[in-house]
Amino acid sequence: MKRSEILESNDQYVSMWKVLAGDRKGADLRDRAGLSVCWADSPFPFWNALFLNETISDRDLLRVRLRMSHTYMLPKRHSGLVYVCEGLLNGAAREHLDAIAASESLTFALDITGMAGDILPLEVGIPHPVLDFARVESETALQAYADINSEGYGFPLEAGRSGLGGSTFWKKVAFAYIGYQNGEPVSTAAAILNDGQIYLALVATRPDVQRRGFGEATVRYALNAAYHATGITRTTLHATDAGFPVYQRVGYHRTTVFKTYKPA
């Protein structure tokens, strides 16, 4: 993996989450030593994030940073994660990451894969033979967008509505699109201008219509719309294991891996 792309992935993650968490009133965006804080204390857990933001090879320094993270998260009302970019760890810190996290009462949550590519525009597959697409521009559409993400990621509907409801950003700034099948909202994707790139976020499909290519089609449509509005060809994202093969088909490649942890 290229060092430049590892740094790019970490920087894009942090800077995008400063915006997304910061869209919620009262979000804490004040960084601590070695930690980038993007914590809205929202029922929507994506908006509660801490990122280790330095290169670490020393086990003791890693222990200190993870202890700080645990101390920060423990009294919070809502759950969140600390994100550790493996590409920023070297030597003993990387080798013993899981053991050190466990010693600081943190348990592994999931792997997130950083991905990127100079792949825009994406014209293939547009228009879609089954889906119609519409940009999120009303509160009603935004609620549908939130509900699909809650269902797709297994959250209560109230979590997504709290995390997105009332937002001007998602209705006016993000290129947030919904795919409709026979007039019913079934899939979402948002392409967002972030630090000179197009960042892909909140891709989801309703569980009852998954594995039909709807998510990929909506991704392609949102990215294409953002490209035609901005002319930017470079795009980044951070994928769960379930989404990873979809993004590979679109043209993204792996740049690094983030291991995430939550209080045990």
Rank of each mutant, 00 (worst) to 15 (best):
R3H: 04
S4F: 06
E5G: 09
I6W: 01
I6F: 03
L7F: 01
E8D: 06
E8L: 11
S9F: 03
S9H: 05
D11T: 06
D11K: 13
Q12F: 10
Y13C: 10
Y13A: 13
V14Q: 01
S15D: 12
M16P: 08
M16D: 11
M16E: 12
W17Y: 14
K18H: 05
K18Q: 07
V19M: 14
L20A: 14
L20G: 10
A21I: 11
A21P: 04
A21R: 09
R24V: 12
R24Q: 13
K25T: 15
K25V: 15
K25N: 15
G26C: 13
G26F: 12
A27D: 09
D28I: 08
D28E: 09
R30T: 11
D31K: 04
D31R: 08
A33C: 02
G34K: 07
S36G: 07
S36C: 06
V37P: 05
V37S: 04
V37A: 05
C38P: 05
C38T: 11
A40C: 11
P43D: 08
P43H: 04
F44I: 13
F44P: 12
F44Q: 13
P45D: 08
F46N: 15
F46D: 15
F46R: 15
F46M: 15
W47L: 15
N48R: 12
N48C: 07
A49M: 11
A49C: 08
A49L: 11
L50K: 04
F51C: 09
N53D: 11
E54T: 06
E54I: 04
T55M: 01
I56V: 03
S57Q: 01
D58I: 00
R59G: 11
R59D: 09
D60A: 04
V64Q: 01
H70A: 06
T71P: 00
M73T: 09
M73F: 02
L74M: 13
L74W: 07
K76P: 13
R77V: 15
H78N: 15
H78Q: 14
S79G: 10
S79C: 13
G80D: 07
G80F: 08
L81Y: 05
V82I: 07
Y83A: 12
V84I: 05
C85N: 06
C85K: 06
E86P: 00
E86N: 05
G87M: 08
G87I: 07
L88P: 07
L88A: 10
N90E: 03
G91H: 02
A93N: 01
A93M: 01
A93H: 00
A93S: 04
R94G: 09
R94V: 08
L97T: 10
D98F: 13
